[in-house]
Design a protein around this nucleic acid. Structure first.
Lengths: 206, 206
DNA sequence: TAGATTGTTAATCGATTAACAATC
DNA sequence: TAGATTGTTAATCGATTAACAATC
């Protein structure tokens, strides 16, 4: 299989969301140009993106809205439930646990950890913040493969080393630290400071 | 001036942060390969990134840590204070207002708005949540140019239309909605659902 | 001077866009 | 059949990487 650009995967969810909205309407079918226009993507790129995964349309007609929606859900495995842990029960961690829409896509944060006694024991949504010293035991017990890091920068690398040791294979990292990881662990960096600084740069340099 | 890739801008902050850390140490100078290795960027890309903005190094020697740090701060205008408003005082909005590190880079969230009477009047950090109907007046009064959107998806476009009308020129949008905007308004989409779904895709497809 | 390292040009790689045959 | 639209190949564009002359 040819390598699929990351940007393509990200666009699939954008397509999915719009299909979800228009699935409520009367139309059964949509063309790549209509859908593309609605989400700000050239129709030719939309078709290219889909072509990595198969043929979903009907020449001369377009795409069946419900079918395409389901196909995208399947590609992105939105139907399967995924259990994750979150580490760092600060403001951002709390926001993510309560984030609307994760559940709907099968993203379930099932444990929250912290190392601060002020936070341990607190309730966030339906979860109780647990002591980070129980991290390993609980991750192994539940067979968890994905961790969200919303901790301060300090100590993130050693935390990650602990996670890797107990079988974590995917990390969503909000700490602005480049991580050293084995090749079989995937990581996604979410760098909010970088985002806003980039936006400010664009504002004053375009 | 040649067009500068967005990815270059984003990497500048990564360099800056590492320089900030090692500025505490004993070394005065660092080579592009050392710095690059520390942050996971090839040295040749680091030099290329810098070359868009000038010559900061010394052949045969490397870069003066403090000088380069200051140059990057200047390029990214981290020294100038920027006033922003945030709209949507939910969990995520609260997290951003309290986000550590924004202040240090001159990013000051100076007003928070919401349309929910349960939220209006609440205290977040040092701010009081204001009624969104005063949005226009306050933005004009304070001459604010940048808005952060942490509202639900519904109604974002009409909110954005209001913002544009009173002179907002940059938008950091956390709502998963493609916005229709004039050409002179810059936007940065922060799509947290897309991030985690992409990570899950990578986990199960690599 | 010899070794190190920059800044930059040229080559490569990968993603986006254009064009169009296939076909509903 | 004529018009519309897909899926895909080829062309373009842009970013990354390699190579190396300049020079500290």
């Amino acid at each position: 299989m040819k390598k699929i650009p990351l940007a393509t995967i990200q666009r699939l969810l954008v397509y999915y969301r719009h299909l979800n909205i228009i699935a409520e309407g009367d139309e059964e079918v949509i063309s790549s140009s209509k859908l593309g226009e609605a989400v700000g993507v050239p129709s030719t790129q939309l078709r290219k993106d889909l072509s990595y995964f198969g043929e979903f349309g009907c020449k001369g007609v377009g795409y069946n809205i419900n079918d395409l929606k389901e196909c995208l859900a399947k590609i992105l495995t939105l139907n399967k439930n995924r259990d994750l842990v979150l580490i760092g029960a600060g403001n951002l961690g709390r926001a993510l646990v309560n984030f609307p829409g994760f559940r709907k896509m099968g993203i379930n944060i099932v444990e929250v950890f912290d190392n601060d006694l002020d936070n341990i024991g607190n309730i966030i949504g339906e979860l109780t913040v647990k002591n980070i010293k129980d991290l390993e035991r609980i991750i192994v017990d539940r067979g968890i493969k994905t961790a969200i890091l919303t901790t301060p920068r300090e100590g993130v690398q050693s935390l990650v080393d602990r996670l890797v040791k107990v079988g974590i294979k995917a990390i969503w990292n909000f700490a602005p630290v480049p991580l050293k990881l084995p090749d079989d662990v995937v990581v996604y960096y979410e760098d909010l400071s970088s985002s806003i600084v980039t936006l400010m740069y664009l504002l004053y340099n375009t």
